[in-house]
Design a protein around this nucleic acid. Sequence first.
DNA 1: TGCAACAAAATTGGCGCCAATTCTTGAGCC
DNA 2: GGCTCAAGAATTGGCGCCAATTTTGTTGCA
Lengths: 234, 234
Amino acid sequence: MQPKTRRASQTSPAAEPAAPAPAGARNPGGRAGVAKRALASEIAQAIRLRMYRPGEWLRQIDLEEKFQATRFDVRSALEELAIRKTIEHVPNRGYRVMEVDLATYRAIRDTRIILEAGAMPGVVAHIGDDEIARLAALAAAFSEAVVTGTRTQQSEINSEFHHLIYASCGNPVMDETIWALRDRSRGSSVTVWASHEALLASARDHHAMVEALRRRDAAELAALITRHIDKDAG
Amino acid sequence: MQPKTRRASQTSPAAEPAAPAPAGARNPGGRAGVAKRALASEIAQAIRLRMYRPGEWLRQIDLEEKFQATRFDVRSALEELAIRKTIEHVPNRGYRVMEVDLATYRAIRDTRIILEAGAMPGVVAHIGDDEIARLAALAAAFSEAVVTGTRTQQSEINSEFHHLIYASCGNPVMDETIWALRDRSRGSSVTVWASHEALLASARDHHAMVEALRRRDAAELAALITRHIDKDAG
DNA sequence: TGCAACAAAATTGGCGCCAATTCTTGAGCC
DNA sequence: GGCTCAAGAATTGGCGCCAATTTTGTTGCA
């Protein structure tokens, strides 16, 4: 192995104090370094928007021209999503949108309940009045979207609502973990809002959450979130 | 863009019923497909064992010959670890072991507490007597290792102990999430056991956990775990 | 008419090359 | 003697090529 062994410098074990932050921006050709990471989230977004359904194969050539990226970038992005469990990699067959079976779905749901309900005390402690006001506005917007908006609009407003909540818990790691799980549960067929009634119930939940938030009632909030996830309104 | 546009086949949106599992094994040249994933965990293991310290640079050429892998494999593995937040990628500088600052450390710790304590009811519900017996054995082994064993041995036994617990919660996703967080917190300087007293306290905690497990006392277990993490004994 | 084997096409995936960038060393200058 | 600047060495990283493998279409045979 090893096509070309140049030099085997000893990795300074203890040295290297910890470089602070050398330079910063760089972008020579056009958007090479950027596209790498961005492409992964673009594809992830497309999956979120159900442009690719669970079980569907993601052909590299298609993505290549769909997103105007090089094959290499596409493959990197695909690999990243596979690691994130958004898609699944089958050797010599390609990548396909992850399909989560019922058991896995329940596992994700239970984990989410623990995490998201557990985040509520932090939210109550850290959230400000302006955020609550914004949440109230979003809850109202969602209620309206249930009647007038498209599926995508509903989904977006709903996402924004929950995003704002978890971002307010004062714990970036928790926020990140919660959204990783939320993304994973999207590959389930259960996830799509079942009925108009379910949507209405979700809208009501949102308003109740805002109320509980105003009262700084963490326990009530946790209970609401738990029910909310259990019904799987996202 | 697009070096060679062959054909833009329409991605069959609804088709693709969901291929079950075509073939399975494949390994022509030697270990190409295997090394890809394996290498990442090998490097991760090395980091876990502190062969590379937080902040230290991981030179591709060194890894190349250290693990007898091609440059391409090394880079893939490094990318994977960067996505997992085990290491950090600095463009044109390379990859280095992630250093977690105090704030992030606390964020991880708080998230872990919520998750790991939240997993306890599941553990109590699903664990069998044989697992408890094994845990008791491990707790004893740890107590002994505190006196006679090396740092690495202690760490390994401790890992096995906690691994067994979380694997018994009946929720693979939870287990996986917990370990992802545990791995991330390793990049902190706080993580290493502070003193001999701390080690002894950890050992005592383990025995107390086994006891609580025997009594199927989820609340007590959760309290123990919370304290255990708070003291940061791993 | 149905099935099986074969052949052609398409797609994935491993790998190496070389340009871009950064780090290091040494000379020149203040 | 210390600092700045510049040339050289080393390392990272983008990208394309082609082999391996799978899928699709077709022909021949029972």
